[in-house]
Amino acid sequence: MQYAFYVETERCIGCNTCVMACLDWKDIKPGQHLQLRRVTTIESGKCPDVRLTNLSLSCMHCGKPACMAVCPTGAISKRAEDGIVVVDQSKCIGCRYCFFACPFGVPQYGETGTMQKCNLCLDRLQKGEEPACVSACVTGALHAGPVDEMAKLASQRAAARLAGATQPSVLISR
């Protein structure tokens, strides 16, 4: 099974509540220079036909994680039961090789020196709760769950799974 995120960009207002909820749940303090979820606003088109797209993204929990393949210590693994890519903090040496392997620039290194990234709030999932970002989203633009459920949700709209060699587990709708 593979868990995935589903982001409805036309609902996202770029308020960054998901980012704050993530920082809060992960107990990341100011000055640690960590941000496991980011909202990017992408401008496209030409005046007067201007487009603004807010896109909230974190680790994509890829089907074929490039970070895992290059990790010298085997600290990065992909859980068989839900496809979530996790980092064993007791094994990571902080060499930053995974940062260069990831096509999305996801891995970050805080004060601990080891790699930090989204684990889809595994602790909350195990209690049957949604990830912090999803449950905090003001407009209901963020969803997380098994990829086929997400695909069913997304089928109501023009949506697609993000394409890429690493098979990112993220669906985006317009």
Binding site: I42, A158, R161, R174
Partner: peptide, 22 residues
């Protein structure tokens, strides 16, 4: 000079092109 490849996922581009401000 080792820059990261910019995101060029066809689905992403298609999606972004489709979102209109107005």
């Amino acid at each position: 000079a080792g820059l990261r490849a910019s995101l060029s996922s066809p689905s992403l581009l298609q999606i972004l092109a489709g979102v209109r401000f107005w």
